[in-house]
Design a protein around this nucleic acid. Structure first.
Lengths: 244, 244
DNA sequence: AGAATCTATTTTGTCGATTTTTTTTCTTTT
DNA sequence: AAAAGAAAAAAAATCGACAAAATAGATTCT
């Protein structure tokens, strides 16, 4: 193939994923999130065939799955496209995250047990250590940082008791991730120090079971992604745009 | 085919839908919601092929889309199944609806304009007339009632300004619809009089822009689906089960 | 009889080829 | 030269056939 993968290699990877469809699904998904395909770009089957080394059926099936996930759009008879991106769209993602994640957090605080608390501490530690190790240099491995950050947010609400809320949270997180990626090139943790500190404060409020303050802080915290990507410098630009 | 449809007929219907995949998607989806396929049932490709008169590709693509929608589950190498149903699952749907729909309602009340109000009144009227026409007899056309009911709930939050919240609301509504359908056989509007009345009260609170009371009422109202399907008679059984 | 192994059958997942539709290019006409 | 139309090329959607895997059934062995 164009890269160094042979047909046999792909078969191996697919076996790991369970099926070629699953393999295609994971790869296309992460490639879209990573910004490899620009928003709105045509996802031509022939091109994907050579890129991933499979035939049309598993590719189309994978794309079909990505439609309901909001990563791909389809127009009858003229194929698939990468879902568009816009400030309004990120504002919408942010609103939905604020609604779902704060509600889930409130429930988690009500019903979380020791295990839940321990998992939060562990997730925070991993994130904190990773950031400390960078020591102000640009984030090198976007994916690893993203995973740790996501894991922390997920740990906070893990005890909410609702599979659907958790699921939707994860989906929205990944959608937002696509926006972050594009902007992360020149992201210095230095700049984002305040944002990183918020994680600690947020955790403290959660562990103190101060639901109201924790939810308020989380609500605010979630706006940062928007500020980061489209903010005009002023911190409060978010609320305005998100409310628009 | 098994029913009276010829290959040409299907082509016509498909043209209307845009593609065979779209045709398959809509049909399988509504057949699952209508309970034609029991929960957990195997969705065998060969069987679907003869039932809908198409070949594997569009069917598999349609099923792939239904996975992310929560109507179909897939297990690698052993095919597709109709998503399972359980009291816990409906409780989860209810929780998610309460979170999303009340948040959306609050936003809609804040920002809705005259048009929004007019649409609510219209949707209520259509629902009310339909129910009145029945005059206590069992609901004959489940789908029509369902459409009107869904349209009313949708009208309430239409002005929330978030495509994603609206979208998710619709998806959750349809998932709950599958539970209602099974129970609707012997549903007399008589029995559900109180529930129907709630719609009017809810509308009044919304139009009076009483966000807090309206959201509280909606939250309560959404529990009725659970009570209706799994309730033990006592009205407050919901809160307990949903909270479990 | 019951467990284990092998065999036949069914079903899933994938591919290559075909049909249909859209897009592009090239004429022709006004 | 612009608009309209026809022909060619490209791409999407679909189909029928095949290979791999799972399931069910038969057979052997202890």
């Amino acid at each position: 193939m164009t890269d160094g993968r042979t047909k046999a290699d792909i078969r191996d990877l697919a076996a790991e994923a369970g099926s070629l469809t699953e393999f295609a699904y994971r790869n296309i998904r992460s490639d879209i999130i990573a910004g490899l395909f620009p928003p709105g770009a045509k996802l031509q089957i022939d091109e994907l065939k050579t890129r991933y080394g499979l035939s049309a059926s598993p590719l189309r099936e994978a794309l079909a799955r990505l439609i309901s996930q909001g990563f791909v759009s389809v127009e009858s008879q003229r194929g698939f496209r990468v879902a568009a991106m816009s400030p309004e769209d990120l504002a919408d993602i942010t609103i939905a995250r604020q609604v779902i994640e704060t509600a889930a957090l409130k429930r988690a605080i009500e019903r979380g047990n020791d295990e839940w608390e321990a998992a939060i501490l562990a997730a925070y530690h991993r994130l904190d250590r990773y950031v400390a190790r960078l020591g102000g240099r640009p984030v090198e491995n976007l994916t690893e940082f993203g995973e740790l950050h996501k894991a922390f947010h997920n740990a906070l609400i893990a005890a909410c008791g609702s599979p659907r809320l958790l699921d939707e949270q994860g989906r929205l997180y990944d959608q937002a991730e696509r926006y972050r990626h594009g902007m992360m090139q020149n992201f210095l943790v230095e700049q984002g120090r305040g944002i990183m500190d918020e994680h600690h404060q947020l955790m403290d409020l959660v562990l103190a079971r101060n639901a109201e303050a924790a939810c308020a802080m989380l609500h605010h915290h979630l706006s940062h992604t928007y500020d980061f990507c489209f903010g005009d410098g002023r911190t409060n630009s978010t609320e305005k745009a998100v409310k628009a």
